[in-house]
Design a protein around this nucleic acid. Structure first.
Lengths: 136, 136
DNA sequence: CCACTTGTGTAATAATGTAACGCCAGAAAT
DNA sequence: ATTTCTGGCGTTACATTATTACACAAGTGG
């Protein structure tokens, strides 16, 4: 379950970045966030990346490796939880976060049996969501 | 098991790129491949990316999303197989490909139960391999 | 011959991510 | 209460990764 300690107060920049992501309701690239926050005084990518680093560390934001994008954790007021997986619709861009504990347990036992010390797990499923498949 | 049809003859560029990757015995970025192949007349990234696209399509090469890198499939003379997962050591860079059919089955049933049509699965485990953990 | 497809070569550019610098504010050390 | 340390911040410049656009060549099938 990897419960995190409740994360500290967010700094102004972290709060702005987290706000953008929460508000978007879907994944955003770092540069998309930057553009959204220019009116709030953001000038450079590093301001975004630094905030994202912390937010990911706190478990409030996930990075989607196959999109080079970031998404707010779908758990309201999330203060951390187990490894997440993501189903990503390639038609509409919708992202569905879930927690496949059983599958993760199997992966974890594979690593343990080989003495591999697991630090981070990425599971991303690409395809077409139900809505897009039927709406066609 | 998603058996592929035996892939067609490789073009010259595809063979060169696949050769680099096989020879490397580990992941390479597209630009690393480009540098290796300059002496063979490669001039531009697109030559590498185009070959990689095909090789990935044929199942002979995998893309590691969390590294923005590519690796030859570890199955000798691979002509395709089920979804692969990768254990990536962050100390030594070693990558271990495996096929966690059970875990993938669980993920697949999650998608099926939701009408999500799965097209591609990314599973990447980051951590420290046994050797690096003990050698310390 | 013509249309079509696939692979190719090249140049230019876009998109994503980092390094290096210095500044400032708050904690904490006695 | 100055010093020292830390974390966050702002800025510039740069590095890395990936794509768009255009033109050509060879093969295939009508």
């Amino acid at each position: 379950m990897t419960a995190h300690a409740p994360h500290p107060e967010l700094t102004k920049n972290q709060a702005l970045v987290f706000g953008s992501l929460s508000n978007a309701g879907g994944p955003l690239t770092a540069y998309a966030i930057l553009d959204l926050l220019r009116e709030n005084g953001f000038r450079a990518p590093l301001q975004v990346y630094r905030a994202l680093d912390k937010l990911v560390e706190y478990g409030m934001v996930h990075r989607l490796e196959s999109l080079n994008a970031f998404v707010a954790c779908s758990h309201k007021g999330c203060s951390g939880h187990g490894t997440a997986a993501f189903a990503i619709c390639e038609k509409c861009g919708d992202v569905n976060e879930f927690t496949p504990d059983e599958a993760i347990g199997l992966l974890k036992s594979w690593t343990e049996s080989r003495g591999f010390q697991l630090s981070r797990t990425t599971i991303e499923l690409r395809g077409t969501c139900k809505n897009c498949a039927t709406t066609n």
